[in-house]
């Protein structure tokens, strides 16, 4: 049996619950400088940025659409990070899933959606997990640093996508680098008419519940957390650290693969190079801001979805470059990291 528990130490609860509020204030003070440089009024800009998207039905639903890949990416990264496996390769694994979806979407046309869609999701999961397998095995068997290998494989994957889109999948009609449209029966159904919100959002919500369940209600979850907090201590407590990390890495890659399926079969209906503006990396920010906790990850992803929608509104309305979103998200992470110092965890044997 496992003879340890993990507990929080540090600042009192009220102080910790104020962290997001302070982080938000400090972030906005910092990014105001950029908005002024963009010759816009910060107060007005923040209205477009944070409030305007929530004032209409269409744009509020769009926040959920934008949050879908972010939630899944955040969950994917969390699975690996909790186990102390630094999977920085979610971006590549996402594209592996997208390739699988683009291919399955064209060959499963004969099947009814109730069959085709689960196969697509499974296919994306397997593709993402396979792309995550090599660095995970290298890490566990040969102790090759996974950070560097997963990062390098992201670059390799982009070349594979480019080779497919400029080669066998290049559109014969337009000559554009985009794969053939997927069959209608493989398109993820819309949840709400007259919106872009699709079944992928439900999958994303499910992934949050699965993450919560695994981390807090299963022995495997406890093993993952133990491996993440300290390999030696975990080994001492009877955890097979290598195996735990390997499985965590594959689940992480698989969920990242589902992001690709969700974007191909829910939004674009074909594969293009620009399917992800860096969701795999943003997932790392989200996982960290969510403190590797399922509900925290969901909240952070929704907030980032709001920022992504808001920057689009802002850029249309006031001409502030859309990259303000990226800067805000990264600043938010750094500010929060500094503030999270108030909070610590430790392993205690019982």
């Amino acid at each position: 049996m496992l003879r340890f528990k993990i507990e929080k130490t540090g600042a009192p609860v009220w102080m910790r619950s104020l962290i997001p509020v302070f982080a938000l204030l400090v972030t906005f003070l910092i990014t105001s400088g950029l908005i002024l440089w963009g010759q816009a009024n910060p107060i007005q800009a923040y209205y477009y940025f944070l409030i305007a998207p929530l004032t209409s039905r269409v744009s509020a639903l769009e926040v959920l659409v934008k949050s879908t890949p972010l939630i899944l990416s955040g969950v994917a990264v969390t699975f690996a990070f909790v186990a102390g496996y630094y999977n920085i390769g979610a971006e590549g694994q996402l594209y592996a899933g997208a390739i699988a979806a683009a291919w399955l979407g064209t060959v499963l046309g004969g099947l009814p959606p109730a069959l085709a869609i689960p196969i697509m999701l499974l296919g994306g999961f397997i593709a993402g997990a396979l792309w995550a397998l090599t660095p995970a095995l290298l890490r566990v068997k040969l102790a090759v640093d996974e950070v560097v290998t997963t990062l390098l494989l992201n670059s390799v994957m982009l070349f594979i996508v480019s080779a497919l889109l400029n080669g066998p999948w290049r559109s014969p009609v337009s000559g554009w680098p985009q794969s053939p449209e997927i069959a209608p029966s493989t398109v993820l159904p819309k949840l709400i008419p007259r919106s872009r919100l699709h079944l992928g959002f439900v999958v994303a919500v499910l992934s949050v519940v699965v993450l919560w369940f695994v981390l807090s209600r299963t022995v495997f979850g406890l093993k993952m957390r133990a491996a993440g907090l300290g390999r030696e201590a975990a080994r001492f407590a009877g955890v097979n650290v290598g195996r735990t990390m390997l499985i965590a890495a594959l689940i992480s890659g698989g969920i990242a693969g589902i992001v690709g399926v969700s974007e191909v079969a829910g939004i674009h209906f074909h594969l293009i190079e620009e399917i992800s503006p860096g969701y795999g990396y943003t997932g790392i920010l989200i996982a960290t801001l969510g403190a590797l906790n399922a509900w925290g990850v969901a909240a952070a992803a929704l907030f980032f979805g709001l920022i992504d929608t808001g920057t689009q509104t802002l850029s249309h309305a006031m001409g502030v470059p859309i990259y303000l979103g990226e800067v805000t998200q990264a600043t938010m992470l750094l500010v929060t990291l500094a503030m999270l110092l108030l909070q610590n965890y430790r392993i205690r044997r019982v």
């Binding site: 950029l34 920085i88 990396y281 943003t282 920010l285 960290t288 470059p321 990226e326 990264a330």
Partner: peptide, 21 residues
Amino acid sequence: GVNQHVSGLGITLLLGGLSLF
């Protein structure tokens, strides 16, 4: 003294976003 993986990636994304902005 925060996690170096995360703070480093945060700085990469921050500087990337700033440059493009």
